[in-house]
Every structure is written in C-alpha cells, then in structure tokens.
C-alpha cells in the first residue's frame, strides 16, 4: 500500500483513499470526427506501458475527489511527483536528481 501525495489536499495519504485512472496526458481530441480511424484507434487504445518512468492519473476518490497526475517509476514502484490536472509534465531529469 503506497503513500500518495494529493496535490489538492497537500497531504501524503494512504493508497486506500485513491483509485488509479490510467495513463496521463492523453487529451480527448477536440474534433474526433476529424480523426482518421488509425488516429482514433491510437487515442483509444495505444498506451506507453513503460518499464520505468510513467505519467499516470489517479483520483483521490475517497478524499477531495479530484483527478490528478503522477510520475511513478514502475520498477521500484515509487512516486517521483504528483501534480494537478492541467499542469504540464514535470521534467523527469530534475525529479530524478531530486530523488537522489
């Protein structure tokens, strides 16, 4: 059970309050009708699933109820950062430097 820092509550809280919500920074296209079948397929189904740094979404569902973004290193299963929905991706090199 991980501890997750909610960027809205600004507290580190038990994972039981949170729900995972898939990969982050995949915006719904503004005009789906303008997309080719392949482009729409990629939006729907193609995910990065990296071994390493993953940008992903969580929801503080049993808390402030906000969706937010997180950077998690999937090998050691450690969070490098969490940030609010709509904020840009943090720089991974900086995060890893901070982690050392």
């Amino acid at each position: 059970m991980l501890l997750i820092r909610c960027p809205y509550c600004e507290l580190e809280l038990p994972e039981l309050e949170f729900a995972y919500a898939g990969e982050a920074h995949i915006a719904r296209p503004a005009d789906p009708a303008g997309l080719s079948d392949e482009e729409w397929r990629d939006f729907l189904f193609i995910r990065s699933n990296p071994k390493g740094v993953h940008f992903e979404r969580w929801r503080h569902v049993n808390g402030c109820a906000r969706f937010f973004n997180a950077v998690r290193e999937t090998v050691g299963d450690k969070f490098l950062a969490t940030y609010r929905a709509g904020e840009p991706r943090p720089d991974v090199a900086t995060l890893k430097g901070d982690a050392k």
């Binding site: 729900a19 919500a21 915006a27 719904r28 979404r57 929801r59 569902v61 109820a65 906000r66 969706f67 929905a85 709509g86």
Partner: peptide
C-alpha cells in the same frame, strides 16, 4: 459518477 467526474474535471474543466 466516476466517469462523469473524469470528463468534467479533466476534459471539460
């Protein structure tokens, strides 16, 4: 409700 909140918060804030 979760699905609606997802769209509302992250796609159409």
């Amino acid at each position: 409700l979760n699905m609606m909140e997802d769209y509302l918060q992250t796609e159409w804030p």
